[in-house]
Design a protein around this nucleic acid. Sequence first.
DNA 1: CCTTGGTGAGTGGTGACTCACTCAACGCCG
DNA 2: CGGCGTTGAGTGAGTCACCACTCACCAAGG
Lengths: 212, 212
Amino acid sequence: MQVNSVETLLANSLAKSDLSQKQQNVLKACLKLFSEQGYDRTTTADIAKLAGVSEGTVYKHFKNKREILDALLEPLKASVLPAVADEFVAETAKQHFDSLEAALRFLVSDRMRFVLDNRLIIRVFLQEVLVNTDLFDSALAMAKQRFVPAVLPMLANFSQPQHPLTLESFRPIFGLMLTYLLPVILKPELQLDVDQATDQILLEVTPLLFAK
Amino acid sequence: MQVNSVETLLANSLAKSDLSQKQQNVLKACLKLFSEQGYDRTTTADIAKLAGVSEGTVYKHFKNKREILDALLEPLKASVLPAVADEFVAETAKQHFDSLEAALRFLVSDRMRFVLDNRLIIRVFLQEVLVNTDLFDSALAMAKQRFVPAVLPMLANFSQPQHPLTLESFRPIFGLMLTYLLPVILKPELQLDVDQATDQILLEVTPLLFAK
DNA sequence: CCTTGGTGAGTGGTGACTCACTCAACGCCG
DNA sequence: CGGCGTTGAGTGAGTCACCACTCACCAAGG
C-alpha cells in the first residue's frame, strides 16, 4: 500500500484538477500558512505573497477565503479518508495475515504513517473542529462508517473463544497511538520513528490481548 | 482532595481579585465565547454584549483583547496546574495507598476529573497551541516538571523486581485517558462518567502491568 | 469635588473582496 | 501566413465593512 500523504495526494488531485500552476501555489501556500498561523490569522495578502501571485488571482478561482479552506479540507473528508479505508480493506482482504500480531502491526504502522504524512492538514482540521463542533460529529461518523467495516473481518478472523476480540479491544491501541501522534500534530517539526513506535505499541499491547 | 475546576477556581480567583462584578462577567463571557467560537472570531462587541457591559468597560481593566486571553490562560499555567500537582503530591504522600491499583485509581480519576472540569479552558488553550507552537513546549515542560515528581514516589513504592515500574509504564494509561477525554474536549457538551471510565481503564491496564 | 467604574459614539486601521485593465494564447479568416 | 478578434488567467489599486481600541462624558460614593 502506498503511503498516502495528503500533501502528495493534494498535489495529485491538483495535477488532475483544472487548476493552473498559480492556483495550485495558492493552495500550497494556504496549507502552510493555515497550519502554522491558523486560518483566521492568515490574510489574503499573506497568501498572495507566499504563492507569488496577486490578490486578485486568489479570487479568480476561489469565491472567498472560506472556500480555500474547504478546498483544503475537502480531499481529506471526501476522497482521502475513504480511499485509504477502501485500500485498507482491499489490502487486508488480500494479505490474509497469518497472525493477529502481523495484522495489528500493519494496521498500526499504516495508520500512524497516514497521520504523520498528513499532519499539516490534520492541524488545520483540528483548528476548525475546535471552533465548529459540527465538524466533529461528521468526522467521527465518517471515521466510524469507514473504519469499522475495515476492521470487522479482522475481528472475525482472529477472535477466539477464550479471548473474544471486540471493537473495544482497539481502544488501548488507539490510545497508545494517540500518545505518539498528538505531539507530532501539535508540533509538526517533531520527529517520529513510526516503525519504532509501532514496535513499542505492539510490545505494550500484546500482554493485554492475550492475558486476562 | 477538592475537585479543581478552573471555572470555579476562576470564580475564586476573581472573588479574591480586585475585579468588579462587571469585569468578572467579562472574563466569564470570554471563556464561553472563546471556547465556543475561538478567540479570533469573537469580537469585543460580542464580549460586551454577553457580559452585559459596554465596550469601554472591557478596556477599563484589560489593555487589549489579547490580555483577556492571557488572563484566562494564566491561572491555568501559573496557578491551577502547579497547585493541583502540589495538592496531588501531598495527597499521595498522606494517603499511603496500600496497593498500586488504589493509587492508580486515584490518579486516573483525579486527573480525568480535572480535565473534565476544565474542558472549556483547555479548549481555548488547545486552540492557542495549534497556532503558537511555543506554548506547546512550555506547557509540556511544566507538565513534566510538575508531574514527574508527583509520580516518582509512587514508582518507588510499588516497583517490584519482576515488574519494574517506569515512567513509560504510564503511557498506556495516559493513552486510554486520552481516548476518553479527547471527545469531551472536542465537544464539551458530551457526557463522561469518570468513575466508569476509570474502572474501564484500570480493567484494561492491569493485565499489562502485571503480565509479561 | 475628586476618584473610580462605567458608557457608547467615534475613529483609524486592517483585511476581505472587487473591478477595470493588461496580456498572452489561440483559433479563424482573408 | 499575418493580421485580428476573443478568451481567460492574472493584476493590483481601490473600496467598504468591520473591529479593536479611545475618549469625552457621566453618576455615585467618599
